[in-house]
């Protein structure tokens, strides 16, 4: 009755902001970015990509509570770019990687299609009873208490 809709785990509400940036007051060139309605899938990938970039001094993410559908990512840069810009660069780079991977997958799949590797599965066992002969349980014929 009172449960929130399950899709609130991954759909932004009306007017909800997908990201929220808080600049760090004590550490230079650092920011904490809250990304709403996303989880480890995006967080860990971004963290790894950020760490591979030379401008980054620190990058880390956490999902503060498993029931709260957001994660926060802390970024500190060396000062040549802002954390926000470097996160954007990381996203662009990841999209590039994914796009090239997508093209390679497409090529590989098209080769496999030509080879005709897609075969039927389970066609040989279609006539067997998959539940181990349920039909064998016929009752001893004759009268049944249901036959009134």
């Amino acid at each position: 009755m009172n449960a929130p809709n399950r899709y609130e785990l991954y759909v932004l509400e009306d007017g909800e902001k997908p990201v929220e940036i808080t600049e760090d007051t004590k550490i230079p060139n650092a920011a904490t970015i809250k990304i709403v309605k996303q989880d480890h899938t995006l967080g860990n990938m971004l963290r790894a990509q950020l760490l591979s970039m030379p401008q980054i001094l620190f990058a880390g993410y956490k999902v503060p509570h498993p029931l709260h559908p957001y994660f926060i990512i802390k970024i500190q840069t060396d000062g040549t770019v802002t954390p926000q810009e470097v996160l954007e660069q990381a996203c662009t780079k990841l999209i590039g990687t994914l796009a090239s991977l997508e093209a390679k997958f497409k090529r590989e799949f098209s080769f496999k299609d030509v080879e005709g590797a897609v075969g039927g599965v389970g066609s040989n066992m279609a006539h067997e009873d998959p539940y181990g002969g349920a039909g064998g349980g016929a009752w001893s014929g004759g009268r049944d208490y249901l036959d009134f």
Binding site: M45, Q49, T97, L101, K104, V118, V121
Partner: peptide, 30 residues
Amino acid sequence: PTVHIRELKKDSVNFVLKNVDLAFANSVRR
């Protein structure tokens, strides 16, 4: 990154993904 499909069946595909991060590969899985 490179990918090599080892086997493609009606309902499954087996492939090798190379030159990517652990985090990236795990995100693909997730």
